[in-house]
Design a binder for these strands. Structure first.
Length: 920
RNA sequence: GCUCGGAUGGUGGAAUAGGUAGACACGCGGGACUUAAAAUCCCGUGGGCAGAAAUGUCCGUACGGGUUCGAUUCCCGUUCCGAGUACCA
């Protein structure tokens, strides 16, 4: 009876759908477990073998948990709004909904072939009105909320309005764009428009005039995480800074909570580190410097308050609001010219030459509040307007950038901390003894910082301050294929659409590009306004909007009254295991946490963090193959001989190469130009060269999972992807080892049958060796799944089979538990075997085997003791060297006693320089 | 520049509360079965030296030190590779 994987897998794919094997419902009698994959954006290219890696791992885990008695929620859906479908639409006129639908169908086909246990009844698509209803709903909730730092949570904006009516801004401690100060009286006298303008300063979803990343190539604004090296992540177009009115989400209000929350999550340290850096908390002080001849003061932020006596100049960002006012007439022309120049330099250019020093003196002076010294004020683009206060006190002796600036403009450099050689470089380290610093002199830097901050506060010229690098998230996109904002305008004041009018559906347009005068595509819609005639917002929401709360929707996907019912939320709570790529560290995984915390604050969900444990699968790279053509000929030379000729390296399709050996016939048929190719072989074979590259069509190294499933079956694909190496590690796809895994499955199958293909298991009692093999494997596989070491558990199965194969074990008591054990990895084969073993129900309704320790008892063990003139046991025993004495010492050692359980050992073998072997 | 990871045979990778390094698999070599191929099975496989052989022995986990009876594992330094981030005051 051969293992006919094609037939078996086809049968069970159908059976699972018919029987609804993977449907889940709330079941209070069983503990829940929520396993989630990051849902895919269905691109036109379909899946390659790298995509399912994480899905296979989570699928194994989900099936394992189910076998362990958990009620497992394991859903799948599609992140369906997004740029590629829209770009394609602009080029071809094909509606993005159509392209998206086609791509989804293709994805589904491919996913189904791999045998995942998704509950497809819970599928969500972010572009469905029934889904984005709740994206819009959440947005309106944010619009209607503010953040209270005293209560440390979001509250309805009505509470803030009441506070304003009662006592203005007095005593408020809330998140805002800009500090405001007014009395209750002033508030009450404001017009509706004025009040709304004030509230925009506090709402968690708000509209503001800000510097944005404008990408002309895509015709839209981008969030910080969508830009890399000054280019758009999607498409690679240049990005420039532009001032525009945009919708934003006040994620900065949650900076500290998101930072603190990380400590309670089971995420990898590297991922947590990335988020910590992205939030970028830094502790320091805000200090106000008087400006000579002006009432106004210059506010700066510094983490090095201790170095205040070393300040020799001040620098403002070019966009700083004081630049215009404090520049003296004789410097006006030069400053304007400098501002003009920096404006022209793109973000990318600025980043490219960070070493170039540029700046301009404004003619104005600040006064050092501690020693009265007048300090020149400069403008320079090395100071960023978006961080801190957009102004700094420059201490060239202890900051490398200030040092470079001072050198360039010949400004004084005053050391205030001992150490380093200031003639060469600045001394930036936060340690050493203070000098030239009045009351700080003699202190260490670590004491001087708090001492100075205390002094600043005492004199009332500033205070301790915590700054975050995190910025508010820009939420508008000037695109078509996204969620419309449920917002309309009256006299340019934004109003929320009433909740009962949601969802606000995306209207049809005949052209998906921006309008001639640069308006978003929705401007083309004739009556894009409320029934009362008020115009709707023209931009749409960004990609991360739909993916921020999708894990909640899976809990209750068909509910049209709420995002998720209380019952469903309280049962499923949050995601126990989330598997996905690390590239979402600063995007989706930040926004989701923010979004969930917000819903938590308002009482809509019962957990503060959305994803308890998170595992990042590595990327699967492509392994390209090459042939070497002798230049100017049609002769191709094998790798080992290529140095003897003048050759050209040519990519060859990896699908016609096996174990780096070229299939010559297939090569001749591959492309017309190779029909009459000649070969110079090594040992009768053509050996190809290889390299690890990104998996891409142009390098002919894309391997399609469908093809692997066709040739080897889904179970082999699943096990092989796990066998490739540690899940979290990036590794090249390489089919070299796939035969080994496939061979294992065939051998496993054959264990159950005789020559005639009849099931041939006996009820005989297994030997102690067979029991031991079984339980050793159960133990190892269980531990490995719990630790996500899927690669070593595949090895454990192979070892198990090697051991059982030696004795040709065909005992039911051993083989039946192994079927359940392997079911998470090879579900199709396990189901088939389970059925043939006479079971009427799915193998996934069985229970995962438990380890029975009594079968694992060792009959001999090694007692780790070394020998070198004297012997020291781990417990700290020390003795002289005769073997007899060693034996006595080993036996009297409490640890040994524990091993032996009171019995006398049969033999103690002393291996000098090695170990002591104790045999029972 | 800063932060975080990593480096083990021809290849992918095992093994760390410090205890016989190289599990498992691929590849390669040899053999069995077969008219032949496929499939299947068995044996060998880190390197050097000695030996006809069994075997013995030395060296080996990027490099140099350290702690230890004992280090792939812990500590310090160096090199290389990867990832994140980048005028963040």
């Amino acid at each position: 009876m051969e293992y006919n994987f094609a037939e078996i897998e086809e049968k069970w794919r159908k059976r699972w759908i018919e029987r609804k094997t993977y449907r889940v419902n709330i079941d209070p009698k069983r503990p829940k477990f929520y396993v989630l994959d990051m849902f895919p954006y269905p691109s036109g290219a379909g899946l390659h073998v790298g995509h399912p890696l994480g899905y296979i791992a989570s699928d194994i885990y989900a099936r394992y948990k189910r076998l362990k008695g958990f009620n497992v929620l394991h859903p799948m859906g599609y992140d369906a709004f997004g740029l590629p479908a829209e770009q394609y639409a602009i080029q071809t006129g094909q509606h993005p909904a159509v392209t998206t639908e086609n791509n989804i169908r293709r994805y589904r086909e491919q996913l189904d072939k791999i045998g995942f246990c998704f509950d497809w009844d819970r599928e969500v698509r972010t572009c469905d009105p029934g889904y984005y209803h709740w994206t819009q709903w959440a947005f309106l909730k944010m619009f209607g909320s503010y953040y209270d730092f005293d209560k440390n949570r979001a509250r309805p904006i009505e509470e803030l309005i009441k506070a304003f009516e009662r006592s203005g801004t007095e005593g408020l401690h809330v998140a805002c764009t800009k500090e405001m100060s007014f009395s209750a009286d002033e508030w009450n006298k404001m017009s509706e428009e004025q009040k709304e303008a004030v509230l925009q300063n506090y709402r968690l979803a708000f509209r503001a005039d800000t510097m944005v990343n404008w990408c002309a190539g895509l015709g839209t604004v981008l969030a910080n995480d969508e830009v890399k090296d000054g280019l758009s992540v999607r498409g690679g177009f240049p990005v420039e800074q532009k001032r525009m009115k945009q919708w934003l989400l006040r994620v900065t209000a949650y900076a500290q909570r998101m930072l603190d929350g990380l400590n309670r999550l089971e995420w990898s340290d590297s991922l947590k580190e990335i988020q910590r850096n992205w939030i970028g908390r830094s502790e320091g002080a805000q200090v106000f410097f008087p400006i000579k001849g002006m009432e106004e003061k210059l506010e700066i932020f510094t983490t090095r308050a201790d170095t205040i006596f070393g300040v020799t100049f001040m620098v403002l960002a070019p966009e700083h609001e004081l630049v215009g006012r404090l520049t003296t007439p004789e410097y006006k022309e030069a400053v304007d010219k400098y501002l003009e120049e920096t404006k022209k330099r793109s973000e990318r250019e600025r980043m490219a030459d960070t070493k170039r020093v540029s700046g301009q003196f404004t003619g104005a002076y600040a006064i050092n509040p501690f020693n009265g010294v007048e300090i020149p004020i400069y403008v320079s683009d090395y100071v960023l307007s978006g961080y801190g206060t957009g102004a700094i006190m420059a201490v060239p002796a202890h900051d490398s950038r200030d040092y470079a600036f001072a050198r360039h403009f010949n400004l004084p450099i005053i050391p205030v901390v001992e150490g380093g050689d200031l003639s060469v470089e600045s001394y930036d380290a936060k340690s050493g003894k203070m000098i030239n610093s009045d009351f700080l002199t003699g202190m260490d830097v670590k004491e001087a910082i708090p001492a100075m901050i205390a002094e600043v506060e005492k004199r009332g010229i500033g205070s301790r301050r915590i700054n975050y690098r995190l910025r508010d998230a820009i939420f508008s996109r000037q695109r078509y294929w996204g969620e419309p904002f449920p917002i309309y305008y009256k006299n340019d004041v934004a109003y929320p659409l009433p909740m009962d009018r949601l969802p606000l559906e995306l209207p049809e347009v005949e052209n998906f590009g921006p309008t001639a005068d640069g308006e978003p595509p929705l401007a083309r819609v004739k009556h894009w306004c409320t029934p009362e005639g008020y115009p709707y917002e023209l931009s749409t929401m960004p990609g991360f909007a739909g993916s921020s709360a999708y894990y909640l929707r899976y809990m209750d996907p068909h509910n049209d009254k709420e995002l998720v019912s209380k019952e469903a939320d309280e049962y499923w709570r949050n995601v126990d295991l989330y598997v996905g790529g690390i590239e979402h560290a600063t995007g989706h995984l930040m926004y989701s946490r923010f979004w969930n915390m917000f819903l938590y604050d308002l009482g809509y969900v019962c957990e503060e963090e959305p994803f308890k444990k998170l595992v990042n699968q590595g990327m699967i790279q492509g392994r390209s193959n090459f042939v070497y053509r002798i230049k100017g000929t049609k002769t191709y030379v094998s790798t080992g001989l290529k140095d003897q000729y003048d050759t050209q390296e040519i990519h060859v399709d990896v699908n016609i190469v096996k174990n780096d050996i070229l299939d010559i016939d297939a090569f001749r048929k591959w492309m017309p130009e190779y029909v009459d190719a000649e070969f110079i072989l090594e040992d009768g074979k053509y050996v190809c060269g290889w390299a690890i590259e990104k998996m891409s069509k142009s390098m002919y190294n894309v391997v399609n999972p469908d093809q692997i499933v066709r040739d080897y079956g889904a179970d082999t694909l699943r096990m092989y992807e796990m066998f490739l190496g540690p899940l979290e590690q990036s590794k090249p796809w390489d089919t070299n080892g796939i035969d080994g895994v496939h061979k294992f499955l065939r051998r496993f199958w054959r264990m159950f049958f005789d020559r005639n293909g009849e099931l041939a298991l006996t009820e005989e009692e297994p030997t102690s060796g067979e029991w031991k093999t079984l339980h050793k494997t159960i133990k190892k596989v269980t531990e490995d799944i719990e630790n996500f070491s899927f690669n070593t558990s595949v090895s454990a199965f192979m070892i198990c089979l090697n051991e059982l194969g030696n004795t040709k074990c065909n005992k039911r008591a051993i083989l039946e538990p192994l079927v359940v054990l392997i079911a998470p990895y090879a579900p199709h084969m396990a189901e088939e075997l389970w059925e043939r073993l006479g079971h009427k129900t799915s193998v996934f309704d069985a229970r995962f085997p438990e380890v029975d320790e009594k079968h694992l008892v060792e009959d001999s063990f090694e007692y780790p003791v070394s020998f070198n003139g004297k012997v020291r046991f781990k417990k700290g025993l020390s003795l002289s060297l005769s073997p007899k004495e060693i034996e006595a010492a080993v036996l009297s050692d409490p640890a040994c006693e524990k091993y032996l359980g009171g019995k006398a050992p049969r033999k103690v073998i002393v291996v000098p320089g090695k170990i002591v072997n104790v045999v029972c």
